[in-house]
């Protein structure tokens, strides 16, 4: 595992330096970067490589800082990471940035596991239910998992809402054992 503590500190430092109220815009930039790194995993590999010189790594990232409409802060962050030999942490830094912004915007990412593909209306109902329950805006993604049997299991990074038939049956089994 990479040094998550250092990555989290860089992410916090970046937010402190950025001093913006426009967090939704920053979130868009963070997500674009995340997508780029996800689609092109070679970039992360190059940045983590000890063989490639920092100067060459910077030149690879050059078009991103000069030709894109991204804020200047990104350019500075990349330079700083290069200077400190921490370009390998870019994935983690972006992860922590996204976490931070979502937390500030009171948004939570939830993966909802269901036994079957649900209709749009039902999906909306579940999302609203969860949003009410946790008092946060929900960014949902639905996954079909036949093991759930019925109902749903909503998972985020730090909580789980289990309203599945699988759990209910397990509870029922335990209640019969205790009889």
């Amino acid at each position: 595992m990479k040094d998550t503590k250092a990555a989290e500190r860089y992410a916090n430092g970046f937010i402190d330096a950025f001093q913006t109220d426009d967090l939704p815009e920053l979130l868009v930039e963070v997500r674009v970067l995340k997508e780029v790194l996800h689609v092109e995993p070679e970039i992360s590999e190059i940045l983590a490589s000890h063989v490639i010189k920092e100067k060459d790594k910077l030149s690879i990232l050059d078009p991103f800082s000069t030709e894109s409409k991204f804020s200047d802060y990104w350019q500075n962050l990349i330079k700083l990471l290069s200077e400190k030999n921490r370009l390998n942490l870019i994935d983690e830094i972006i992860y922590f940035l996204e976490q931070y912004i979502l937390r500030e915007l009171n948004i939570v990412k939830i993966t909802i596991n269901t036994a079957h593909e649900l209709a749009g209306e039902m999906k909306e109902k579940i999302v609203n239910f969860l949003s009410d329950k946790i008092k946060k805006e929900v960014e949902s993604s639905f996954v079909v998992d036949p093991e759930v049997l019925g109902g749903f299991i909503a998972e985020s990074d730090n909580f789980i809402v289990d309203s599945s038939v699988k759990r209910s049956l397990e509870q029922f089994r335990l209640s019969l054992i205790k009889m």
């Binding site: 329950k133 109902g151 990074d157 730090n158 789980i160 289990d162 029922f172 209640s175 019969l176």
Partner: peptide, 23 residues
């Protein structure tokens, strides 16, 4: 009859818990 009674009384509910991942 006891089992039938249990089934009748059984209600579905949600279990909401804070979680972490084993690393």
């Amino acid at each position: 009859s006891i089992i039938r009674d249990r089934i009748k009384k059984f209600t579905l509910d949600q279990d909401i818990a804070e979680t972490g991942k084993v690393i």
